[in-house]
Design a protein around this nucleic acid. Structure first.
Lengths: 226, 226
DNA sequence: ACATCCCCTAGTGTATGCAAGATCGTTTCT
DNA sequence: AGAAACGATCTTGCATACACTAGGGGATGT
């Protein structure tokens, strides 16, 4: 999302939606803070209409909460809630990888292995953005490997919402190396067709990511947000 | 959604959203059919603005597809896609019940058992709507039993989208009895705290529901409605 | 006849205006 | 003085108006 901003989509509402989503996940906008339509519109040089659409979209992604006739506020991203989101993500990923281990075609499996190989270079160069991009491709290939396009769509949507957190988490020193090692375990289980084991490895992978994020945010945010 | 329509919310966009969602899940609106904003607005005596908001909401629920500057069309609800949705629902439900079996408090467990007991009467009287309502409560109690409110929200949202299909599926003769029997197996596993077994039972439960729906629609599908 | 280009139209994306509801301060009554 | 009621103001929800893009149909050239 941050890697390829060659988005030729000139839709104002989309741009506003992306920008607000980034600011919310990045913590620039504090939880509970009211979002005034006019004010946001001014900030982006737009009228209230596209802002409204963006806010509705964000509400559907539960990044903001809309109280009818009472305005929108930034949804509460307490540490507890982030942990919950990570747990759900972990379970969804585990579900996907379990199905994928059973259903992926040989071609899909080889693509997955190739992506994993390519990521080695990124890790060696400590190229966070590059690794994040390959990471995304790796997981997306698994989603598609479920051969359930509805599930894949939902997984992608969920991952999009978590994008900022996932990226942040990679900034912990040494995390990319360990992340890649965890991927390797998942990959091996997939190759063996052992769905249950792959699911367990994936759960562990996401759990570790969650812990890494927690350590990072605990360090630089001793502030209490409610 | 169908049980308590005592919705005092006078928001036009909400009413339109609900109405369109019903028509789509009921099959009144055929897949791929373009949804003209002006035309829909006229039909509801509203302007394009609330219609647009409703369409965006529906797009977020993937009931319609919006192509930028090219309008919205009813999302494809092919039999294949419905199966995919049921599979994902099954996996989500399985995930929830697995977590719930480990985490539910004694009070929550007893509430679940009580709901199951009460449903016996509904099944005996062949009260589809009543059973559907208790069914909903049963599953919702499981969602909350995961003690992960984010997961619970997502599960509820997903279930809402499937509401029409789930209700339809119960109309197959003898289905409520079997549905309740499947619930019983799930309940027993939860009571034993056996999450994995509960998950397996729940998957089977949803799979059977999916099959029942398929049999029903296959019977009356050969009609083209428009 | 077929392909290409252009214009036209239908329909979306955005801006603005207006009315109803919610919040908050003030006033008034007990 | 405290509480309830009232009104001013601000913000949302909806309607209307305008701009711009995509797709289609017709004309033109090969």
């Amino acid at each position: 999302m941050s890697s390829d901003d060659a988005n030729p989509n000139p839709l104002l509402s989309e741009r506003i939606r992306i920008a607000l989503a980034d600011e919310i996940t990045a913590g620039t906008l504090v939880a509970g803070q009211p979002l005034d339509e006019q004010q946001i519109g001014d900030r982006f040089g737009a009228s209230r209409t596209p802002v409204r659409e963006a806010l509705r979209q964000l509400a559907a992604a539960s990044l903001v909460e809309i109280r009818p006739r009472r305005g929108a506020i930034v949804a509460g991203f307490t540490a507890e809630r982030i942990v919950e989101m990570f747990e759900m993500t972990a379970e969804i990923e585990a579900m996907c990888v379990r199905l994928a281990a059973w259903r992926m075609t040989p071609i899909e499996r080889s693509r997955l292995a190739r992506l994993h190989d390519e990521s080695e270079e990124m890790v060696a160069n400590n190229d966070i953005d590059g690794y994040d991009r390959l990471n995304w491709e790796f997981h997306r290939t698994i989603y598609e490997g479920t051969h359930n396009s509805f599930l894949a769509e939902q997984a992608i949507a969920l991952r999009d919402r978590m994008a900022a957190f996932r990226r942040t988490q990679l900034r912990e020193s040494g995390r990319p190396v360990r992340s890649r090692g965890e991927h390797e375990k998942v990959l091996e289980a997939i190759m063996r067709g052992d769905g249950e084991e792959a699911a367990r490895c994936m759960r562990a992978h996401m759990f570790n990511a969650s812990i890494a994020l927690e350590r990072l945010t605990a360090k630089r945010e001793p502030t209490s947000n409610n």
